[in-house]
């Protein structure tokens, strides 16, 4: 498994742990019924669906989709995948802080942070699609390095 895929998968597992920890805390007596859970719930969903599910799909797709050549660049340009990892995790962590903050004390830095988080995550998705689109293809049958 390539290094970048390992990074995605390990980050995904970290978010799974974080999401279930947040959910577990909410099960403490009386906490789920409190307004704080309503504030945290959208963030929890996205920790699970973006941090865990999306990141796992990105990592597995980067690893398993058909290659486009041979040698170190056989998976194509890796820069968008690195960018997507940074943008996704930066955006999601920023969201984890700014979304509950905005719900409790709207405006100012919280609002700016939330908007930044939104478009950082969007940019992560776009960057990953830029990388993966040319890899949605049949098996590579081009020349091997020796033959090239």
């Amino acid at each position: 498994m390539p290094r970048l895929a390992r990074l995605y998968l390990k980050s995904a597992f970290a978010y799974l742990l974080l999401a279930f920890t947040v959910d577990g805390l909410a099960l403490l007596p009386g906490l789920r019924a409190r307004p704080v859970w309503a504030v945290v719930r959208p963030t929890w969903w996205h920790l699970f669906l973006v941090g865990w599910v999306t990141q796992m799909i990105f990592g597995a797709a980067y690893w398993m989709f058909p290659i486009v050549g041979h040698g170190p660049t056989k998976r194509g340009d890796e820069r968008p995948v690195w960018a997507a990892w940074g943008l996704l995790n930066g955006g999601l962590l920023l969201r984890t802080v700014s979304e509950p903050w905005q719900a409790l004390h709207p405006g100012g830095l919280a609002a700016a942070g939330l908007v930044a988080a939104a478009w950082l995550q969007w940019a992560a998705g776009v960057a990953f699609v830029v990388h993966i689109w040319p890899r949605i293809r049949g098996w590579y049958r081009g020349p091997r390095p020796r033959e090239a």
């Binding site: 905005q102 939330l114 988080a117 939104a118 478009w119 969007w122 998705g125």
Partner: peptide
């Protein structure tokens, strides 16, 4: 679908702030 979904998601989150 993913590109559409994340665009609407970003707009929804922006709406929460603005």
């Amino acid at each position: 679908h993913f590109l559409v979904a994340i665009t609407w998601g970003a707009l929804l989150l922006t709406y929460k702030a603005w």
